[in-house]
Each structure stands twice: as C-alpha cells, then as structure tokens.
Amino acid sequence: MPQSSSIAARSGSQVTDTFATLGRRQEIALVLSIFALIAFFSFTSDYFFTVRNLTNVLGQGSLVMIAGIGVAIVFMSGEVDISVGSLQAAVAIPLIEVMNATGNLWLGLAAALLLGLIVGVINGYLSAYVGINSLIVTLGMLFILRGGVYLYTGKTAIPDDAYLESFFVIGNERFLGVVPYPALIALILLLGFMYVMSHRPFGRKVYAVGGNAEVARLAGFPVKRVKFTCFIISSVMATISGILLASRLGSAVHLAGIGFEFQVVAAVVLGGVSLSGGVGSLLGMALGVLILAFMSNGLGMLDLPTEWQLVITGIIIIIAVAFDEMKRRRAG
C-alpha cells in the first residue's frame, strides 16, 4: 500500500497543486491513523502484524473498496447511492444460476453484469434525467432488489453447483500465494479509477458537476449524462463486489450485503468525500476503507464482541464528518 499511495499522491499533486495540499493533508492524517492503528494492534496481538494477517485485512477490505469506488464517484457528482448492498446480493443470483445451468463462468459473469447495468441505468435515469432525489431512488431500489432476492430464493441460499475452479479462485485464492485476488482486483480498479478521476476529462467533469452543476452546465458539460454514468459505474462496481462475495460464499445468499451500503458510505465519508459533491479523492476513500478494515480486524483479536466494530465505526463516522465540517467552516 505505501508505494501505491505515493504514486497517487504524486499524480494528485500534478492535478491540482494548491488545492491538493488541502486534500493531501487529510490523506496524510488518514495514513497516520492507519500507522497508529497498526502500531496499537501489533502491541495488543502478536498475530496482528504478520504478512498473513495484513493481507487478510486487505482481502476483507477489498469488497468495500470496490463498491466504495463507485459510491465515492456518485458522491463526488453530488448524488448518493445506497442500493449497493442489495445489488451485491442480487447479482449473485444470475451469476450462480447461469453458471449452474451452463457450466460457464463467463456467461455467469455476463449475466451478473447485465443485472448490474440494468440497475445502474434505472438508478441513473430516474435520478439524473427524471430528477427524483437519488436518496429516494436508491432507497426504493434497495427495497426492490432485496425483496426480489427473497422472492426468487425463497429466503435460502442458492449453492454453486458448477464448482468451477476459476470461480472459486477469484474470491478465495491468493495471487502468488500472498495477495488475495479480491485485493488485487480492488487495487487495479482503484488505480484505474484514480487515473480516470484525475487524468481523463470524464473524471474532471464529475468533480465539476458535483462542485457546481450550474457552472458545469454553462461550460457545456452534459450534467445529466455525467451523473447517469456515475450511477452506472457505481452499480458495476457493486456488481463486481457481489461476484467476489458470491465466490467467497460459494453460493447466492439472500442475506448477503445487508447493511453493506452503510459500511461503504462510512468508508467513503471517513475518506473525506463529502455528501455535497465536488470534493474528495478515491485515495482518501481507500484509506478510509483500510482504517475501518484494520479496526475491525484488530478489534476481532482483542476478544471484544464483534458488535463493538459497529459501534466504533458509527462513532468514527460522526467524528470524521464533524471534524471535516469544523475545518471547512474555519477555512471559510
């Protein structure tokens, strides 16, 4: 992680120098918190600071990170998407069913992606083009997808009967025996989208649209289309995380991803991406994910009940946003 963050910091500095110093200060604070967490938990548990465990943490955080990319981009465009948890559960169904029926991983992936795209199109169309508040749209979608999953599965899990080796590998094995594949995929997607957000016109348009939609419109940006695209990215990212989750679970589980949207929002907000749009970075989001993942892993080793994680995550979110607000008010 350290080397990737320095790459990002450098590319970030080229993009928006003076502005980035503000953002970078936040990222530095996040990195410092991660070091502090690692130091603390290394002290409390001998097992914590081992390659095995640290890579485990990456694996655990990777699903949140992948979905977080999409949700962060939607946030940056000034909208919200809270349907990702339900979508994560929903895409597993076409994936597993098609694989079971055809024995072909690619067809299964295509089916999952198709569902993800449809959901993204609906969310994006209703939010960006019709103009319904995206919180309502994605809240409705959260209901609809979860209900659909229950309805289809009859509230049980659909097991993967195809037993495709490659499907098992993507969620459970490690690249070169060290890095879990989900973490690798998350890293690739993260770097890719960091590049898009700072080096492609599309990425800049997302920031512009979220920062000031009226100005973006005057500059001739297709505000609606940009937002629409963000919703599709978000759904596709959630789909990828859903595929990895299904691989890990070896089935389409009707309860998968309940509350996942809140974990994602927590990480995104902790990483400094504001609900009001136009600010924040994917690097910050990724650091937010890592903090929550280390926290969760370390607390797990402290023999504390797992619910402490929820409680502490909740407190962290509130404090992080409160600090952010205070900083912004002081800056004027």
Partner: peptide, 27 residues
C-alpha cells in the same frame, strides 16, 4: 445535538448512530 452542534449532515449522523445502536443493543 450531533446535527445542530457538530453540524454533521443528518443523513450521515444518523447512519452513525444507527450503527452505534445496532451494535450497542447486542452488547
């Protein structure tokens, strides 16, 4: 108080307290 004093957006703030309560009730 979190919303009015700390100026945290109420959507985020109450997602936070929701998590705290969900965890807290089991503790």
């Amino acid at each position: 108080l979190i919303v009015t004093r700390l100026k945290v957006n109420s959507l985020i703030a109450t997602i936070g307290t929701m998590m705290i309560l969900q965890g807290g009730v089991f503790l």
